[in-house]
Structures are given as structure tokens and as C-alpha cells.
């Protein structure tokens, strides 16, 4: 009985392990810039995942750049003031800072829905943006800060920094995906999509809509901070634009591009977006925005459920993100 369960779990996990293994050997096959691109795409996928969990409750965060910047500047300030360079500690710090920020702002935001939620998140992120810009002597203003490559568990990666960041990001992403998936399979996770369908009914069933949203927001903020921290590691430079509205807009764009019917959709969206944008830069340097806009237009008009709907065409919109075998 027990053995059967274990083997079933193993069988269920096998495809994911295979994917993970494939991703693990990928940087050996790819040129440097593609490896770097994947690192950045994976790190941003965390932020996109954060936007996506909110979108499951029909909340559009137009200010997730806030957490992206918070995570990144945690790295910057920890290096500047505390001379902290250890990746694990920095990740921990970014999670704590963005979590604390989300815990605070969530108190206000949990009351809001629809366009008001979006506008308030936008306002918060723009306040952070103007602070990062204004506190010039602290943050370097628009010049941003250079973040030196961190040590990973005490090891200085040196020449292998690119790959080290790739694996670090991959591990963080895998953990975050597993956790988010688990969370969504929990009663709280189901609550989030129930809120999307009918708030009043959720309240009548005895659950608190506000708390559901608050906790979802907390998770989404932490994911955003983690993503920002990892981007700071690999890119090595952070700037106030991380909190600008166009950055937040990109995250929403990628969420819709990938779709949000699965936790893996944001990863797919993020990778495709980075690839498309890079080829747009390389192939039409003078009109890359137009190429990007045209692709977005096509997706919005013809694939409003995102790229993931190509893979799972018959999945209903509000289908749970988790496999149906759970609970």
C-alpha cells in the first residue's frame, strides 16, 4: 500500500524530474547569451508567477515592479551597507523585505477589487520609483547600483558565475513552483479561485475573502521580491526602472502571454517573451517595439488564454492549477 503510494508519487514526479534534468544540462548546450537570457527569464518568471496567482482571484497588479525593485534593492543595500555577499542570506533578506512590504500594503489592498486594485498597486510602485529616483545619494538615482556577483554558500563562483546564477535561479524557481503548486492545492489556494467566481458565496461558506486575498498578495509579493533579487544577481546592475510602470506592464503582459491555467505557464510565457524581445532587438533594431506590439496584439486577439492554451486546449478557464488527483 505504502509502496504503491510512493511509486505513484514517483511516477507523478518523473516527468517533472525529466524536465528539470533537461534544464540542468541546457546551459552546456547553449551559447552564453542564451544561458543568460534563460536565467533572467526564469528569475522574472517568479514575478510573473506572483502576478498570475493574483490574477486567479481576478486581481490585476499593475505595480508588481514594486516587489521586483524591493528584492533587487535589498541586494544592493545589503552589499553597500552590510557588505553582505552571500546569496542564501541575500535571498532570505529579499524574501523578508518584500514579504514585510506586502504584509503592510496588503492591509490596504485587500479591500480593493478590479481597476481600483490595479491603480492602487500602480500608485504604490510609482511612489517607490520616485523615491529610488529622488534618494539619489542613497540609491545612485537613475544610474542605479552595480551589484557584485554573490558568493553561493561561501563559494566564489568566479569565471563560472553565469552558470552558477543559472542553477541558483533554477533551484529557486523549482522550489517556488513546487510551493506555489502545493499552496494552490490547499484550501487557501482553492479559496483564491472561488473568490474570482463569487465572493459573496465564499463569505457565506464561512471563509474570509479579505484574508484569502491578503495571503495571496503576501505570496505574490514574496515571489516578486525573490525574482528581483535573482535578477540583481545575474544582471549585476539595478535601476529605479525596476519599479516603473512599464516594467509592471511587462509582467502583466507576460502573464497573459503565458496564460495562468498552470503554474508552469508563467515560466513558458517568460521564456518566450525574452526570446521574442531579443530577436526583435536583433532583427529589427529600429522597430522592435512595433514587432513586439504586433505579437502582443495577435496573442490578445486570438489567444486570450495565453500560450499555455495551445498545450492544454480543452482545459476550462477556471480549472485548478493542480493535478486533479489531489484532494
Amino acid at each position: 500500500m505504502r509502496g504503491a503510494q510512493v511509486s505513484r508519487t514517483l511516477a507523478g514526479a518523473a516527468p517533472w524530474l525529466a524536465v528539470l534534468l533537461a534544464l540542468a544540462i541546457l546551459p552546456r548546450l547553449l551559447p552564453d547569451w542564451l544561458g543568460f537570457l534563460l536565467t533572467v527569464a526564469f528569475a522574472k518568471a517568479l514575478v510573473v508567477l506572483g502576478v498570475a496567482v493574483l490574477l486567479r482571484s481576478n486581481l490585476v497588479s499593475f505595480g508588481h515592479g514594486l516587489y521586483f525593485a524591493a528584492g533587487a534593492y535589498t541586494v544592493g543595500f545589503a552589499a553597500k551597507w552590510l557588505h553582505l555577499r552571500e546569496a542564501v542570506l541575500l535571498i532570505f533578506g529579499a524574501v523578508v523585505v518584500s514579504g514585510a512590504l506586502a504584509a503592510l500594503l496588503g492591509l490596504f489592498l485587500a479591500r480593493y477589487r478590479g481597476i481600483f486594485f490595479g491603480m492602487l498597486t500602480l500608485a504604490f510602485s510609482m511612489i517607490l520609483y520616485s523615491l529610488l529616483l529622488r534618494l539619489y545619494w542613497l540609491t545612485g538615482g537613475t544610474d542605479g547600483m552595480v551589484t557584485a556577483p554573490p558568493t553561493i554558500l561561501g563559494v566564489v563562483p568566479g569565471a563560472a558565475a553565469g552558470r552558477a546564477h543559472y542553477y541558483l535561479t533554477l533551484v529557486c524557481l523549482a522550489l517556488a513552483l513546487a510551493l506555489t503548486r502545493r499552496w494552490l492545492g490547499s484550501p487557501l489556494g482553492y479559496l483564491a479561485s472561488a473568490i474570482r467566481d463569487n465572493e459573496i458565496r465564499v463569505e457565506y461558506m464561512g471563509a474570509s475573502v479579505r484574508q484569502g486575498i491578503y495571503r495571496t498578495y503576501l505570496l505574490s509579493g514574496v515571489l516578486g521580491g525573490l525574482g528581483g533579487c535573482l535578477v540583481a544577481f545575474s544582471v549585476g546592475h539595478i535601476a529605479p526602472e525596476f519599479s516603473y510602470w512599464t516594467q509592471s506592464g511587462d509582467f502583466v503582459f507576460v502573464t497573459v502571454l503565458g496564460g495562468y491555467a498552470s503554474v508552469f505557464a508563467p515560466v513558458m510565457g517568460s521564456v518566450v517573451f525574452e526570446l521574442v524581445r531579443n530577436y526583435a532587438y536583433a532583427l529589427s533594431p529600429y522597430t522592435w517595439q512595433m514587432s513586439l506590439g504586433a505579437i502582443l496584439l495577435l496573442i490578445v486577439l486570438f489567444l486570450p488564454r495565453g500560450l499555455w492554451s495551445l498545450l492544454a486546449p480543452r482545459a476550462p478557464v477556471s480549472s485548478p492549477w493542480t493535478s486533479s488527483s489531489r484532494r
Binding site: 490574477l55 481576478n58 478590479g114 490595479g118 502583466v252 506590439g293 502582443l296 490578445v300 486577439l301 486570450p304
Partner: peptide, 19 residues
């Protein structure tokens, strides 16, 4: 469609018109 879709559609138009 949902608000986010219309928002993105206008974002796409913005990008195209920009270039």
C-alpha cells in the same frame, strides 16, 4: 473580455503606434 485583456490590447497598440 476581462479588464486585463483590454488593457493589454491598448498596450499593444501603444507599442505599435510608438514605432
Amino acid at each position: 473580455q476581462e479588464e486585463v485583456i483590454t488593457l493589454l490590447l491598448t498596450f499593444a497598440i501603444f507599442l505599435i503606434l510608438e514605432d
